[in-house]
Design a protein around this nucleic acid. Structure first.
Lengths: 230, 230
DNA sequence: GAACGCGGCGACCACAATGAACTCAATCTC
DNA sequence: GAGATTGAGTTCATTGTGGTCGCCGCGTTC
């Protein structure tokens, strides 16, 4: 929802007016984030989420009226599916555990610099972009979402050093054969080198599109045989 | 490793009576888990958590009265800090994303075997034990908690000379048999050589995942027989 | 048109599994 | 009880594949 065409709307929650202001300027220096509002109490935060529908809430835990973590279930009950990033001085292990249990996307300790916040926002942005295009075919895809790891191709999400054309070529070769293919066989089948074939096959394995099994019996190192997964 | 404390109380939630029964037996086969109750609807689940105070809830998403994910904020609002592991046939990307946003500890797709559930429960148990003894001194500790939430692929730190695939193969063979296996039997069962089989079995023994007993009586050197340990 | 970035390739090194040869600790034979 | 027997544990050179490094051609940019 809220497909604000790329931008990520942020609500800043901190009881200290000056601190909230600093957070705001920090966030707005990072693309494609945009601060749509500020709140200074838990109740204000809930109202603000209701009104502004942000994608992400930067949440302090020490608020005058509520403990920050108690704000989150209130949001969920109200049907909001925004993400939450905790920014707080709270170092209690219980607070961190509770935050993880509530599914916060990150937990940043005060005091912090712009250099601390910026990479975390960027990590969130890329991770968010991946999730929005994820297709769940099996357990491997689910595990990838949980681990926050790579996403399936789904277009141009290929890592550097790989091209869509070659990927399609290898994919077709792998689909074409009954049974399994080794890296060398895939190479001769596609006409590309063994090294490249192996790189793409291993990529398919990492993304969960291919399954790999080892064949023993011959002397020498065992052979990795790949098969496409539906 | 890490038998930090007592048992972990589990509530099983599934609308299908038979399925809930199966989950129950699966869970009780894993130390130190104990099933303290079963629920078949969302409302039942909430009442059961209220009454039984479990540490972990195995939650199906397709429930007759509520969507499973809507159960979680109800629990949080009621002040329960139990963990949730989703076990469902729901493959919608929205369901997975929503589950992550709610902070579930794992998400397992049906149908599944005991061999699928068991390592996930064990991972949860060790992670839980680790969290309970964590002291937060700085950002690095917080990051470790966040990363460790899902990170370890359950056995990635193998020594040189061994491969994860072969390790998994031997592990499955060892788990599969009732009773015990010798190195030679494991070799024929897996299709690898006796030497390799023994190397992995001995590794499992060294890491505490397998128990070893000697069998005498036959002429010749006594035989080391391995059995898997939970 | 020179400099740069990117993807594929050949060559080389590392590695995991193998099987033969060897060692070892039990039982068997006398 | 000493030595032969036996079958499992242990070592090691061999081997063919996995994996990496740097080069090269090609398209793109300034």
């Amino acid at each position: 929802m809220t497909e604000s065409a790329g931008t990520i709307d942020v609500l800043v929650v901190d009881d200290d007016f000056m601190v909230a202001r600093v957070h705001r300027t920090f966030v707005e220096r990072v693309e494609p984030f945009r601060v749509v509002g500020t709140a200074h109490t838990g109740e204000q935060a809930i109202e603000a989420v209701d009104a502004l529908r942000p994608d992400l809430v930067l949440l302090d835990l020490y608020l005058p009226d509520l403990f920050g973590l108690d704000v989150i279930p209130r949001l969920r009950t109200a049907g909001h599916d925004c993400d939450v990033m905790v920014i707080t001085a709270a170092r209690e292990a219980d607070a961190v555990r509770g935050a993880v249990r509530q599914g916060v996307v990150d937990y940043l300790l005060k005091p912090f610099d712009y250099e601390d916040l910026q990479p975390r926002l960027e990590r969130y942005a890329t991770q968010r972009g991946r999730l929005l295009t994820t297709v769940v075919r099996g357990q491997a895809d689910v595990d990838r979402v949980l681990a926050g790891a790579f996403a399936p191709p789904a277009g141009s999400g290929l890592p550097k050093g790989m091209s869509v054309e070659t990927a399609r070529l290898v994919e077709r070769a792998l689909r074409g054969t009954d049974g399994t293919l080794s890296a060398a066989e895939a190479a001769t089948a596609t006409g590309i080198s063994r090294v490249s074939a192996r790189r793409y096959l291993e990529y398919f394995h990492a993304t969960g599109n291919a399954e790999v099994s080892l064949r023993y019996g011959t002397t020498g190192r065992p052979e990795r045989r790949y098969s496409w997964r539906s």
